[in-house]
C-alpha cells in the first residue's frame, strides 16, 4: 500500500471542500476503500476520514421517522429496537450480512456507497465503461455473479444487501455538500450504467451521505426477505427478494424489490400488481414465479439467477403473508 495523507475534517463543510479541491476519496469505516487501495485499484495521495464529523452518527427519530446517521455501524442498525420493530426486513438483511467483524466496523452510509464487487472493475489491469474506459469485460468473460437485468452497458450488481430493502421501505437518502442539503428517494439514489456508467450513486463531488430516513408512514409488519448465497457466512447475495405487503398498513400497497441481479436495486411494479390482485395463494405465487424472470438478459454464466429468483420470490411472499414454508 502506497502511504497516503489522511485528512481529519471535523465538519461536513471541511470534508466537502477537501474533496472539491483534489477529488480525494471519502472514507467512513474503510472496509471497502482500504481493500481497493491495497489492490492498487485506487492509489490516492490523500483520503478524507469522515469519522470525526459530529452529528452523523447514531439512530434518532422524529415525526418524519427513524434517522440513521451515515456513520452508524451496521451492527447497531441491526440490533436497534426502532429498526427491528418498524423496519424488520432491514434488521434481518443486515443481521446476516458479511461477518461480525465487518458489521462492527462498516457503516450504513459506507454500505450504500461501496463500489460494486465486479472482479474486472476491482482489478488494476482492466479498463471498462465503469472506470473510464469502454466496454464490459464480464459480458464475454467470467460473469457468474453478475447482473441478469440492465446489463448491456455494464453488468455489475449493486453490492449492498441493505440497498434493496431501503428502496422497499421508501427510505430517503440525505446528502450534503458545501452547497447545502438534498434529499433523494432511495429508489433514485442508485445510478444505472445507462444514466452514467462512472457513477454508482447520485453524489456529486464534495457531497456525502449524512443520514438515511426510514419514513414513519412506511413502517410495515408484513414483510419477507429471502436471499441465496454460495455459503452462509461472509458472502454476498447471489440474488435477493424483498417483499413488503400493505406497506405502512395501506391495503394493496405492496413492494417487491430484487437485489444482486442488476446494477441497481430493482423494484418490480409488475410483480407488485400481481400481488395486489388478491389473496396470496398457490396460483398467485405461480404467476409471480412465471413473471419474475421476464426481461432478464442472462449472460453465459449467470442464467441460474432466473431460477433462483423463482424460488426466492415464493419464499419471500410466503414469509410476508405468514404462510409456512412450502
Amino acid at each position: 500500500m502506497k502511504p497516503f495523507q489522511v485528512a481529519l475534517p471535523s465538519t461536513i463543510d471541511q470534508a466537502s471542500k477537501l474533496q472539491l479541491k483534489d477529488a480525494s476519496p471519502f472514507m467512513a469505516a474503510g472496509t471497502d476503500l482500504l481493500v481497493r487501495i491495497k489492490d492498487y485499484v485506487t492509489v490516492p495521495d490523500m483520503i478524507i476520514d469522515l469519522k470525526r464529523i459530529d452529528g452523523i452518527n447514531g439512530i434518532t427519530s422524529d415525526d418524519r421517522g427513524v434517522w440513521l446517521g451515515a456513520l452508524t455501524r451496521m451492527h447497531d442498525v441491526a440490533v436497534s429496537e426502532k429498526i427491528q420493530q418498524g423496519y424488520p426486513a432491514l434488521a434481518e438483511t443486515i443481521r446476516n450480512a458479511a461477518t461480525p467483524q465487518i458489521r462492527n466496523m462498516a457503516t450504513i452510509g459506507g454500505n450504500i456507497c461501496q463500489q460494486p464487487r465486479c472482479w474486472y472493475l476491482r482489478h488494476e489491469g482492466y479498463s471498462c465503461a465503469k472506470n473510464g474506459g469502454s466496454g464490459c469485460w464480464a459480458r464475454d468473460g467470467e460473469n457468474e455473479f453478475h447482473a441478469i437485468f440492465g446489463n448491456k452497458v455494464c453488468a455489475v450488481v449493486q453490492p449492498s444487501n441493505a440497498a434493496p430493502v431501503l428502496v422497499a421501505y421508501g427510505a430517503v437518502i440525505e446528502v450534503q455538500g458545501s452547497d447545502g442539503k438534498r434529499e433523494i428517494p432511495a429508489g433514485e439514489f442508485f445510478v444505472t450504467p445507462e444514466q452514467d456508467p462512472r457513477k454508482d450513486v447520485d453524489l456529486t463531488s464534495g457531497e456525502l451521505v449524512t443520514r438515511i430516513l426510514l419514513p414513519a408512514e412506511n413502517r410495515t409488519t408484513r414483510w419477507g426477505y429471502s436471499e441465496a448465497r454460495e455459503k452462509q457466512s461472509f458472502d454476498w447475495a447471489l440474488a435477493s427478494v424483498t417483499v413488503l405487503l400493505d406497506r405502512g398498513g395501506r391495503a394493496g400497497e405492496h413492494r417487491v424489490v430484487l437485489g444482486a441481479v442488476s446494477p441497481v436495486p430493482l423494484r418490480r411494479k409488475d410483480l407488485e400488481k400481481i400481488l395486489a390482485g388478491g389473496a396470496v395463494d398457490g396460483d398467485r405465487i405461480s404467476s409471480l414465479k412465471k413473471k419474475v424472470g421476464e426481461g432478464a438478459t442472462p449472460l453465459s454464466g449467470n442464467g441460474y439467477k432466473v431460477q433462483m429468483l423463482q424460488g426466492l420470490i415464493g419464499k419471500a411472499v410466503r414469509q410476508a403473508s405468514g404462510q409456512k414454508e412450502g
Partner: peptide
Amino acid sequence: RGSCGACTVLIDGRVVDSCSMLAID
C-alpha cells in the same frame, strides 16, 4: 482484506478486523 478474521482484535469489547482499519482510528 477483511475476509479471513486471522487479524481479529477487540475494540472496546467488539470484534473487528484490524487489517481493515487505520491505526489512527
